[in-house]
Amino acid sequence: MQATQGIGKPAKERGVSGRTFRAAAWLGWQIESNWADPLIFFIYSVIKPLSGAAILVVMYSVITNGAFDDPMFAYIYLGNAFYIYVAAVLTGVSWTVIDDREIYRMLKYIYIAPVHVPVYLLGRGFAKFAFGSLAVFITIAAGVYFLNVPLDLSLVNWPLFAVSLTLGIVMLAMMGLVLGSVMLLIVNNANFMGEAVAGALYLFSGAVFPLSILPGWLQPVGYIIPISYWLELLRRSVVGQVAESFPTFSQFSDIQLLAILAGLTALFTILGFVVFRYCDHQAREKGYLDRYSNF
């Protein structure tokens, strides 16, 4: 005996992805800005990125005896500022799995809704991106204003900047999707994974020092981290003269770097969806979609 098929079509079978993305981004923004007290919200969104930068500035000034005019300073400062995006987008997308499953306990309801879960996760990540942009902007503005980071808006290569930023954010989101998919399968102690990955990449992606100052045998680590190429492109587009002072990527032209970044972005996009498909299947087999750890 066969069950007969539905009474007409449900409201929408496909084409809800745009709505899903927007609703997810909206939810993400509500969560980010959910501070009862505007003062705490202000502190969180302004003081936090600045204090992160301040630590770096103090360390730099102690080590170099206050050589703020050295191109190295601008290099580090900007690398650090843009790295805010890595933590925001990478953990923003992947952390949503843990948040929704274990804190809000709503993942199962989203999962059984007619949404593409990756679209939902990316929407949540988009809110983090928007919020991160605020922090990046504040950090860079503070650097230019107080620390003479040599940023001249008329010298910025805007087209290169826009293309690199977009590609990089997409790449980070897709890396987040890979990580988030894996988190579907980790019930206990997945909470630190996003931070751990972002932290590990921080050291070797050229965020806080040029790869060229690493010992030769360690440099390949930097070259296999996709974020290195992205950060280099951002620096070149924003402060070309600074980037030129370091030989790390000088063998590549802008176009070559862009091509590499585009290739990596495509790679992670494919990887993101393949890994999601696999982990989704596994999680459903094992019954992990509504498992809660005790934290």
Binding site: K12, G15, R19, W26, L27, Q30, I31, R105, A113
Partner: peptide
Amino acid sequence: SSGYGLLTVRENLWMFAQFYG
């Protein structure tokens, strides 16, 4: 007890309606 506690009742419900198109 589950739900996005920071959203209002209407917002919680509206969002799920979005997911269903």
